[in-house]
């Protein structure tokens, strides 16, 4: 039987993560809370983005103040500052590398040294590839891949439209973007010909803003519909020509967050009315964790072993469910 610890954090929960076994909640008012320790860190005046550090030792945050911070239960340390600009997106890479986007500029910070990559248009999504120091930047009409360790020219992946988020597959073979046109787009990086590389996953009634790969990369779960849409990635060509699995279908609410379990083929689903469930991907069996709340779920995260699920909502409701 699941047990639930609940917290009221006051404002929009931007990101949750388990860091050294402690649940971290980054909130839009600039605070990072560790409610089980009954404390928090005041990081920014207003926080815009946050992500757990790769390796799980800290949370990385960006704010309206243009500062990029590394937050632990002990406090914050400033990694970089872009004066006068908002830090729109943040991503964590290998060996402490951090990337942030501020409008059209991307800053890759390695060993404390920022390297700037300017784009013609704003960068709305950032993600490091699973291996090496390679950074994917979602932008208008596609994705730009930068090589962080060398001066090699960037690799451009073109697809017309508005790409608002990016997530590579765990094996690095695919790059998936969320599009404002209520679709996902994908590129198969090992395709022999560029024209064979595209994957188009459409039919969403809303923007599929939340994406999560299942533990072994067999499934890509996505929000943006009245069910979690899970695309199969077992075939070499990805999900092309295959129907997705629809999990946790509801008539009266939309799926707004998805987060796959770190070990099993299970996905946690957060809805616009605050409901949280977990579903087995293979047989669709559902387990209700939270029936509803005041606001849409805005963040979900599992701990390393998959025993606990943390959630937060747009109204600052938050909690940790122990399964």
């Amino acid at each position: 039987m699941a047990t639930l610890a609940q917290y009221d954090l006051g404002e929009h929960v931007e990101c949750v993560a388990f860091i050294e076994d402690e649940a971290f909640f980054a909130v839009a008012d600039g605070k990072v809370h560790f409610p089980a320790l009954n404390k928090g860190v005041e990081a920014h005046e207003s926080l815009l983005c946050a992500t757990p550090e790769r390796g799980g030792k800290a949370m990385l945050t960006g704010g309206e103040d243009g500062r990029v911070l590394r937050v632990t239960t002990e406090g914050w340390k400033q990694l970089a500052e872009v004066p006068g600009k908002w830090i729109d997106v943040i991503a964590s890479g290998p060996n402490g590398a951090v990337a942030v986007a501020a409008g059209r500029s991307v800053f890759l910070i390695v060993d404390g040294q920022p390297r700037q990559f300017d784009h013609a248009r704003a960068v709305e999504g950032l993600a490091f590839m699973p291996k090496g120091l390679r950074l994917a930047c979602a932008r208008y009409n596609g994705v730009t891949l930068h090589w962080g360790a060398t001066q090699s020219p960037p690799h451009e992946l073109q697809w017309e439209g508005v790409h608002i988020g990016v997530l590579p597959s765990p094996d690095g073979r695919y790059i998936i973007t969320a599009m404002a046109e209520n679709a996902l787009h994908g590129w198969r990086l090992d395709a022999r010909k560029a024209q064979d590389s595209h994957m188009r996953m459409s039919g969403y009634p809303a923007k599929p803003k939340s994406l999560s790969w299942s533990a072994k990369g067999k499934w890509l779960a996505s929000s943006g519909a009245q069910a979690a849409i899970c695309w199969p990635f077992t075939a070499r060509e990805g999900p092309q020509g295959k129907a997705p699995r629809e999990l946790g279908t509801r008539k009266d609410s939309m799926v707004v967050e998805v987060c796959c379990h770190p070990v099993a083929d299970v996905v946690a689903i957060g809805y616009a009315d605050g409901m949280v469930i977990v579903v087995r991907i293979d047989n669709g069996v559902e387990n209700l964790l939270r029936s509803s709340g005041q606001a849409p779920v805005s963040a979900l995260a599992w701990d390393d072993k998959g025993n606990r699920l943390a959630f937060g909502t747009e109204a600052g409701e938050a909690g940790v469910v122990t399964l």
């Binding site: 929009h12 815009l48 908002w86 704003a122 208008y140 404002a180």
Partner: peptide
């Protein structure tokens, strides 16, 4: 205006 989509949402996260 794609930038407005981003900025307006950012501003209004805080009620």
């Amino acid at each position: 205006r794609g930038d407005l989509v981003r900025v307006v949402q950012g501003l209004l996260k805080r009620k």
